[in-house]
Design a protein around this nucleic acid. Structure first.
Lengths: 178, 178
DNA sequence: TGATGCATGTAATCCGTTACATGATTCA
DNA sequence: TGAATCATGTAACGGATTACATGCATCA
């Protein structure tokens, strides 16, 4: 799964500019399980247009720069369906947080707490953006599933962390009192 | 966080060969939140040795090829502590599975079920390997935390999927009966 | 006046994977 | 005899990020 397929898949849901796609990978529906930068999105869109999988329409805007709106073609939809037919690769989860927690013997209790609080904040921010997607977006079955999955997994993380964090804080509070 | 730091962190827990490190990234403690290939591990270890953050000891073995056992040095520990001091980057989660589910309108119900079953199998395999780590490994606080976190998150995924999958299967069974 | 948002794009660079190369031993 | 495990390493290649470049409008 590369940025090219990602863009093609995105455009099968709605037409969009490169800028909008990036935005959605940052804040929208896709933000908790995919990412891509402008440096990969713009070339991918040009390439897709060259191959006829998408079309471009240039729109002038008053007060804003011109934009290029990309739409998927029938050929594009066919290509997408073909690539969706392949079984998905296993999820990839990379966590510096867990790495730090595994090496917690090398850091102070306070550093540990700080790392956990940062992790909590990150998870909650993700949950928040899922909530916003739910309120705004069109609640079809597909996005419901994806947001629900994200919600379930993130909530589990928060619950786990809350438990551990409160225990840690209780211990440090007790030690401070002594 | 690059492979270099990853290896240094690993070696702060126990001395090991490049081969063993790779193994642990595949099956062991690290497997559900980190990965690296030989092509990046071996050069990283050589580099660390050059810089004096680790030392190498060559061991001959009967019946097996010689191996190079790497151990962290005091300088290495200091460098590691310094890098652990930096707040961890946000977790990265990439899921082709969720991508497919978001585009489920383009595929058949059967394909959807197949993808979900594959996802279930992947999650359960990960849970299984966590369980094995728990039985074998030394149950210190750090590994307990990491395995517990993984367990919580993966279990949430399984629970969510089981629910959705059983509903889907019920519907298709009903349709088949009609 | 300086930051932020909208909007597109390229080039350098990095980091890592894949594939290749080697070789002995053990197990089926 | 062929596959799998142990064990190390390099070179080619790919894919993506980062930084850079540009420019107007709005808001504080």
């Amino acid at each position: 799964m590369n940025v090219r397929e990602l863009c093609l898949g995105y455009l099968s849901l709605r037409e969009a500019t490169g800028y909008e796609i990036k935005k959605d990978f940052e804040e929208g529906m896709f933000c908790h399980f995919m990412e891509a930068s402008y440096g990969s999105i713009y070339p991918a869109l040009s390439q897709l247009a060259l191959e006829g999988l998408v079309t471009v329409r240039e729109e002038e805007q008053s007060g804003k720069p011109d934009k290029k709106v990309y739409s998927i073609t029938d050929v594009g939809v066919a290509a997408l369906k073909k690539s969706l037919n392949v079984l998905p690769a296993q999820d990839k989860f990379k966590s510096e947080f867990l790495f730090i927690m595994l090496l917690q013997n090398h850091i102070t209790v306070q550093q540990r707490i700080t790392a956990m609080e940062k992790q909590m904040a990150d998870l909650k921010a993700d949950l928040q953006s899922i909530e916003e997607c739910r309120q705004q977006g069109p609640c079809d079955e597909a996005s419901d599933f994806v947001l629900g999955y994200g919600n379930a997994v993130l909530t589990a993380g928060v619950t786990f962390l809350e438990d551990k964090l409160s225990k840690l804080q209780a211990i440090t509070a007790k030690q401070a009192a002594e």
